[in-house]
Design a protein around this nucleic acid. Structure first.
Lengths: 186, 186
DNA sequence: GAAAAATATGCACACTTTTGCATAGTGGGC
DNA sequence: GCCCACTATGCAAAAGTGTGCATATTTTTC
């Protein structure tokens, strides 16, 4: 059920349309909760039916009209209530690590390429988040309360990402030795 | 669809029953792919219908009989094929971090408690995995290929866990200052 | 001038995951 | 003797997620 709350969270500061949300999700709460546009549109309708969001159609020139959603008082209350409730332990699902359990000379090359691809993706992410942190969250002690929380989430993402990059390097090294071994034996 | 492959992976070395899988999942592949027992039983039946697993009933004394599953040649082939296919980027969903975006003096105490609980859970995990690594994966260079992969997955889990513990400490410190501020203002 | 990409929203179906319940025997503690 | 925990398996329904497709306009690129 946390998609609803992730959307509400994204709408605390700004009113956004489904399309804007789907895009901006990546560069805000989306680091910690991602969703496709289909999911977002559906959820937005549910939330406005519940009265947690209000909507207004904005006519645009040169672009299709958009439906902009804003959080209501009831929405804010529901969100606050959710925060105070119990938190589910994280899912922890990673195909790549399961695949590594099946490492063999046959697939070492493929897995190394996958690790490499992940590494690059994570590099971009960490870079982006680092930039946001430096610009807007440089001195956590002086931030207003709510933004201290955002700082912590951002920091978690960055640290996790940096750790992952270091791990990738170790993995690529070891995978290279497996590949080399196979090449020698052929 | 990766639950199927996670199960197959867990059954590479040992034949296990659904109950054993559900339990042992935590201390093997389950660090990277968890599932409830209902899911596991269902998936086991599907996999044995497909011919990827074979099953045999084992009569026990003092306990209900169990159905033990083993991976077939077809299962191994399907698994190998899956490993060579494209890998989905990780889900990245964490309620706790979304909740942090909503930090306020009201919920700082609650969130600190949640972080603390996660910290303790992660401590146990890291400890367990560290123990396994030291005992069975101390010298990665000398391991057979497949176990090198397990070593890498294990290392990813441990590092990620240790990083998380460090983050928890930082988070708890900052959350404590928020709580202290609130106490002063009352 | 045509094709592609971006803006903007949505339906329908399939698959996955979660939740709640059901059954049934054994062993241990009080 | 009763209750609880553990072993062991499973069904059914609901909720959540993902995939593919559909539509319509405008701006940008070749």
């Amino acid at each position: 059920m946390a998609l609803a709350q992730a959307i509400l969270t994204a709408l605390i500061d700004d009113d956004l349309s489904g399309y804007e949300l789907a895009k901006d999700f990546e560069i805000s709460v989306g680091f910690f909760w991602n969703a496709s546009h289909q999911q977002i549109y559906q959820e937005l309708r549910k939330l406005s039916d519940k009265g947690w969001l209000n909507k207004r159609e904005v006519t645009q020139r040169g672009k299709p009209n958009k439906i902009v959603y804003g959080i209501t008082l009831a929405g804010r209350e529901a969100l606050s209530k959710w925060v105070l409730g119990p938190t589910k332990t994280q899912a922890a699902k990673d195909e790549l690590l399961v695949k590594l359990y099946n490492l063999s000379p046959d697939n070492a090359g493929h897995l190394a390429a996958e690790v490499q691809a992940r590494r690059e993706e994570m590099m971009r992410r960490v870079y982006l988040y680092e930039k946001i942190r430096m610009r807007h969250y440089a001195d956590p002690a002086t931030l207003p309360t709510r933004r201290k929380g955002v700082y912590l989430a951002l920091t978690a993402g960055i640290r996790q990402g940096e750790q992952f990059l270091a791990w990738c390097d170790e993995a690529l090294e070891l995978l290279a030795t497996v590949e080399a071994e196979q090449a020698r034996q052929q």
